[in-house]
């Protein structure tokens, strides 16, 4: 599903405050796998996720997603890929606070081709039910609790039925019980055949995944 080969990413390249966030990272994630990415703060976890999520481009190395080489694609094509193949659960949920839960869930469909407005609504309702937040549909997101917002974010991430789900510390702000339920939800998606890559600080969460990698100062190590 995901194949990174010697990926490097340097922020502010060529300036005095250049930061080498990733240094020649190679990583392969198979379809149906759930991968936890761990590492201390600033080690490059989010950067890795942004690259896999086609939001940022590597300076060096090659990146294949679902059998396609994406490192040379144009930004509009990348938008298309993000819209169709990737579901992003952002570090701070990344919801639009003034809108209702249902509207937030509908949004990715508003930017995808060939989905009618009716279909958008129907699909979003179906997903929100699946995620267990149907009763929150009409509530504004800014009024929801952290756990509820996280569910909305997950619903939004999967409304387009993406093959790959990327989650940046989805449980960081949640208590154990809520975190477990969120993980249950995410892993149930993996059981449906999707691929999950999850960034976490929490060993407990990582242990629920089928595989764990560690990043330290932009370098990746497998297993322990």
């Amino acid at each position: 599903m995901v194949k990174l080969t010697s990926i490097s990413r340097t922020y502010n390249k060529g300036t005095p405050n250049a930061v080498e966030a990733l240094k020649g990272v190679s990583l392969e994630v198979n379809e149906g796998e759930s991968l936890a990415v761990m590492g201390v703060s600033g080690s490059g976890k989010s950067t890795l996720l942004y690259i896999i999520g086609c939001l940022d481009k590597a300076d060096e190395g090659s990146f294949e997603l679902d059998g396609e080489d994406v490192s040379r694609k144009l930004s509009d094509q990348l938008s298309r890929i993000r819209n169709e193949k990737i579901g992003f659960v952002l570090q701070d949920y990344g919801l639009i606070p003034e809108k209702t839960a249902l509207e937030n869930i509908m949004f990715p469909l508003a930017f995808s081709k060939g989905v009618s407005y009716k279909e958008m609504k129907r699909q979003a309702k179906k997903i929100s039910e699946f995620v267990g937040i149907a009763e929150l549909n009409r509530k504004r997101v800014s009024r929801l609790s952290g756990g509820q917002q996280q569910r909305v974010a997950i619903a939004r991430a999967i409304v387009n039925s993406p093959k790959l789900i990327l989650a940046d510390e989805p449980t960081a702000a949640l208590d154990h019980k809520t975190a477990d339920r969120i993980m249950e939800l995410l892993l149930s998606l993996v059981n449906e055949g999707r691929t999950l890559i999850i960034v976490t600080h929490d060993k407990r969460i990582a242990d629920m995944c089928s595989r764990t990698v560690y990043i330290s100062e932009g370098v990746i190590t497998e297993g322990e």
């Binding site: 939001l55 938008s79 298309r80 169709e84 992003f88 990344g94 930017f111 991430a157």
Partner: peptide
Amino acid sequence: RNYLVMITIGAKKRD
């Protein structure tokens, strides 16, 4: 921020 979030979920810059 909302615009960038929309881009994350697949909007084109042009959209």
